[in-house]
Amino acid sequence: MLNTASNAPVDDKRTLERALGHQIRLLRRERDLSVADLGAAAGISPGMVSKMENGQISPSLSSISAIANALNVPITALFSAFEERRDCSFVKRGRGVVIERRGTKVGHIYELLGAGLRGELVLEPYLITLEDDAEAYMGFRHAGVEFIYMLTGEVIYRHADQDYHLKPGDALMFDAQALHGPAKHLKTPMTYLSVIVYPRD
């Protein structure tokens, strides 16, 4: 098993094997062949062909080649259904999109550092700068979980009815459905990383 240095589960699904099996079954049926017919033509047992079609095994290259020959297609045709995409978002320094979030006050600058990843969760990473004239605001509230990592400056950050004194290197993670926000600016300008995660609609 891969060591991911994380408690997140490893994606151990046989994505490639299933895609390969799906394509073999599709091509076999297009030619009106039974599992036994394909196995006989390829010199492979029907049981092995069935396991390949169901993505239960990782077949050898020789077995894949034999199946391709029996179906009269190039080996690459067996992998045409496989598309494993892992999204990535790269933003160069200073190139994040400056946006206005709902409830943003004067002196609050939000720079979105990444976007566009697919999946069941939406992740919004922001570099937030509070300038010298920034207004205190504790009225933020939204779905999901928020993580804050303090980079520069100092702030009293309020979550629900609790205040937290954040200095560079401090981190805070909380349920973002409770009211929250910077209550008192102790040293400005300040910057902190804010990562918001919530379910995609």
Rank of each mutant, 00 (worst) to 15 (best):
T104G: 13
T191Q: 13
D87E: 09
L130S: 10
L179P: 08
L2Q: 13
L27R: 08
S34Y: 08
I64P: 06
M173W: 11
E131R: 10
A41D: 07
Q23F: 08
S65K: 13
I156V: 11
V49Q: 02
S65T: 15
D11S: 12
A81D: 15
R158W: 05
V195N: 06
N54I: 04
L123K: 11
L71Y: 00
D163G: 02
F174R: 01
S63R: 04
A160E: 12
T15L: 13
T76D: 14
Y192A: 03
S6W: 13
V98Q: 07
T15I: 10
L179C: 03
A134E: 00
N7L: 15
G169H: 13
H185W: 11
I64K: 05
L2M: 14
R101V: 11
G94H: 11
L26Y: 14
K187Q: 14
S63G: 01
L61Q: 05
R95W: 13
G47D: 04
R28G: 03
H22T: 12
H180M: 09
L71N: 04
G47W: 00
S63M: 04
N69L: 13
A134P: 05
A19R: 02
I67A: 09
R93S: 15
T152K: 03
L130H: 11
V122R: 12
N7D: 15
G144Y: 03
L117A: 07
E30F: 12
R28V: 03
L117K: 03
G144S: 00
N72C: 09
R31A: 10
S45L: 02
E83A: 12
M1P: 12
A70Q: 05
A115E: 15
V35Y: 06
P59H: 03
L179T: 04
R86P: 01
Y164W: 11
A143R: 11
M138L: 10
Y149D: 12
M150W: 00
G153P: 07
Y198M: 09
I99L: 05
S60Q: 05
K187E: 14
A41K: 11
K187W: 08
R93M: 15
L123I: 14
P168Y: 06
R25G: 01
A36P: 08
Q56R: 11
V155H: 01
L112A: 03
T104H: 10
L33W: 08
Q23R: 12
V106L: 09
S194F: 09
D132K: 15
T188P: 05
M1Y: 15
A42R: 07
E146V: 04
S60H: 01
L71W: 01
L151G: 09
A66V: 06
G103R: 08
S50Q: 01
G116Y: 04
L78M: 00
P199F: 04
E154F: 06
P74M: 09
I75H: 03
T129H: 13
N54E: 07
E154W: 09
R18H: 03
R95G: 09
D133V: 02
E30L: 07
G153E: 02
G43A: 06
P199Y: 08
E53K: 08
N69C: 09
S65L: 15
F90Y: 12
V49A: 03
R101Y: 04
I44H: 10
R118C: 01
L123E: 11
I99A: 05
G114L: 00
E135A: 08
G39D: 02
Y192C: 05
R29A: 08
E146N: 10
D201T: 10
S58M: 01
P9A: 06
V195Y: 01
S58K: 04
Y110D: 09
